[in-house]
Design a protein around this nucleic acid. Structure first.
Lengths: 236, 236
DNA sequence: AAGTAGGGAATCATCTGATGTATCGGTCAG
DNA sequence: CTGACCGATACATCAGATGATTCCCTACTT
């Protein structure tokens, strides 16, 4: 095993064993390198990888700290996989996303708070206003869409599920989706679907919430089918 | 953005843009460092991170190559998240795993080949023999269990789903599970459940396969409840 | 002619030292 | 008490040298 891999595994192990806890500061490079028996260069290669993985956070002039180890943060690197897999035929990615978000909606129906329902409603109301304008502020629409889905995921009560959903509903996927269906007033239909999901959540009806969410995501996916997108054709 | 991050993003971008394809060999360190405008050290930090992420593969004395970019391979680093999240209360991890594997079973029911069915059956038959022995060869039992689940996942026809399942049904989770239920002949019950899943697959009945798999995983999860595990208590 | 052992070039792995840059905290003038 | 200054600290980056491994060509053996 390379020195770099040793560094990574050692630090991971120390975190799993509770030697380092979220927010803890690591020893300075020179010291940590000596204690692990590697040079600063090799140590930095390992720290660099851990930083990309969202395990540690280095601040120049300050030090290196263990992150909060939040699942969403640790799963962020998965975005590359989603981007990569979604280049051509994104059906697999969408199928998984649908599976995850439907489950989140089902769980959220019985767990969502009145405050979160109100917050979601406020977002949808804003979307209503924007959709009525011409031209639409699509950036804001997308932002609202992401927030709406995130509220639902957050109230599933499952942090791992939240992390996965965030990774799968990332920027690129969402951007691709909206770029394709921002024409022909499809945002009105999307808005109606969002509203249907919200009503099911407000009624605290798990099955209804799941179905409404499934219907919504299916609609979005179908907007992608048969796109005049070179990538889509080339991999079929 | 740090030089290291620039290196990582540049190479990721080049892969997404098709400049580098799976199996391609990257320019030598000195050359690549110059073309990206960074020193060899910074380049190596980036390459090191990409290597950990499973994007590239460096071989001393040979060169650095783009991996096959297989989803399962790229999702392997997520194992740390599973390990981390599964230290204390692993319910969230198990809930997600159950969701993923049930969907895989459902999909596999209509897609699994006769050959794969036969292969799975052979594995289960071997498990039958081993379970009858005393003492059991638990290592082999675990190996068979993993292979059985993997065959099902592989025939879901969704590569992303396969990658996630592999990450979530990784070594540590599986080891924890089996360590806890390898007593009191629970492996017989597990074996019966596997058989029920197999029968549903053989009948190409999606709903039945999903339910049998759900039942199987619930049984496994329940074996974990109320374990005298310090971690479990401390985080509740 | 075919197979094999040897050697050299190419490439990554690692270490060392030096310099640049950002942050934090104390000090001191106002 | 406030705010600007300044130095210690720590990470960021670069450069050079040496070691280890692989690949491939050559020459030798059978």
């Amino acid at each position: 095993m390379s020195r770099t891999a040793e560094v990574i595994n050692s630090i991971k192990r120390m975190i799993l064993d509770g030697v380092f806890r979220p927010g803890d500061r690591l020893p300075v490079e020179k010291e940590l390198a000596e204690s692990l028996g590697v040079s600063r260069g090799s140590l930095r290669e390992g720290i660099s990888a851990l930083s990309i993985l969202g395990v540690v956070d280095t601040r120049q002039g300050d030090g290196t700290y263990i992150t909060n180890l939040d699942v969403t943060h640790l799963l962020a690197p998965m975005g590359f996989v989603v981007d990569l897999e979604g280049r051509g035929d994104a059906r697999h990615v969408h199928a998984v996303r649908r599976l995850l978000e439907c489950e989140a909606a089902r769980l959220a129906a019985t767990r969502i708070t009145d405050g979160a329902l109100q917050e979601a409603r406020t977002l949808l109301d804003e979307a209503t206003r924007i959709a009525a304008e011409t031209p639409h502020d699509h950036e804001r629409i997308i932002e609202i869409d992401i927030k709406f889905h995130r509220i639902i995921a957050a109230h599933s009560g499952n942090s791992v599920l939240v992390g996965l959903i965030d990774a799968f509903a990332g920027r690129t996927v969402r951007a691709r989706l909206w770029r394709s269906l921002h024409e022909e007033g499809a945002d009105w239909r999307t808005h109606e679907e969002h509203l249907a999901v919200w009503k099911a959540l407000a009624a605290h009806d798990p099955e209804r919430a799941r179905i409404r969410m499934a219907n919504h995501l299916l609609g979005v996916e179908e907007s992608l089918r048969g796109l005049p997108d070179d990538d889509t054709r080339s991999t079929n």
